[in-house]
């Protein structure tokens, strides 16, 4: 078994890099929420529920859209063999703070549903029909060795045949997403799914938060 990163995407500092090439860059005067809305329009996703998502879910949703564009991994591998593993360091704190504001008046049910970090996984799973293993880890900072170990183990134990994984962080206008599509596809065309490459892609993403 040789796991490869068959596609990867980073969204940070108002820039989007897809498979090592700049895909979109916006002016820094845009607020982070406006940038995400602009990116959604450019992605041509046509998924009105996007507007109801919190910022963390929007960010993860967009990164997954780009990494999975032109693919239907649930059909290719079977929905139960397609999974997601995400991590960040602030969980759903951004949504928690917004919800807390509404509690002072009438609590918003629509904001309450996003006060868990793994909701972003649910949104992506619904969109792409992924029904395999999923997990969201809250860590002090991005840990490439943990991600490599955990995802590789899922493949070794034949729980997954394809995995969308990586880092998705959004807090008070600061954000960073680095998402990898991992498959058992050996070959020179792809980067190997190892600690060095995971770390390098994360580090070279534009802008940084917690890492």
């Amino acid at each position: 078994m040789l796991l490869s990163i068959t596609s990867y995407c980073s969204i940070a500092d108002h820039s989007v890099v897809l498979n090592g090439e700049k895909w979109y860059s916006a002016e820094s005067i845009l607020s982070a929420p406006d940038f995400l809305t602009e990116l959604y329009k450019r992605s041509r996703a046509e998924y009105p529920k996007f507007y109801k998502m919190d910022h963390l879910a929007q960010l993860g949703f967009l990164a997954a859209e780009l990494v999975l564009q032109g693919r239907n991994i649930s059909e290719e591998y079977g929905a139960s063999a397609a999974g997601i593993v995400f991590c960040n360091s602030n969980a759903s704190l951004d949504a928690d703070l917004h919800y807390f504001e509404t509690v002072k008046n009438i609590p918003s049910p629509a904001q309450f549903v996003y006060t868990l970090p793994n909701i972003v996984i649910g949104e992506i799973s619904i969109r792409h029909c992924l029904k395999g293993e999923n997990a969201f880890f809250v860590q002090e900072g991005f840990d490439p060795s943990f991600l490599e170990f955990y995802v590789t183990d899922l493949f070794k134990r034949e729980r997954l045949k394809v995995c969308v994984c990586g880092w998705v962080e959004y807090l008070e206008g600061k954000y960073k997403a680095v998402i990898y599509l991992v498959e058992n596809k050996p070959g020179n065309r792809y980067l190997q799914f190892d600690i060095k490459n995971i770390h390098q892609i994360y580090e070279t993403a534009n802008g940084e938060i917690n890492g």
């Binding site: 109801k52 008046n105 009438i106 918003s108 049910p109 629509a110 549903v113």
Partner: peptide
């Protein structure tokens, strides 16, 4: 969830 938001709308 939208149904709950409509209830909030009526109240607000």
């Amino acid at each position: 969830i939208d149904a709950l938001e409509l209830i909030v709308l009526l109240q607000q």
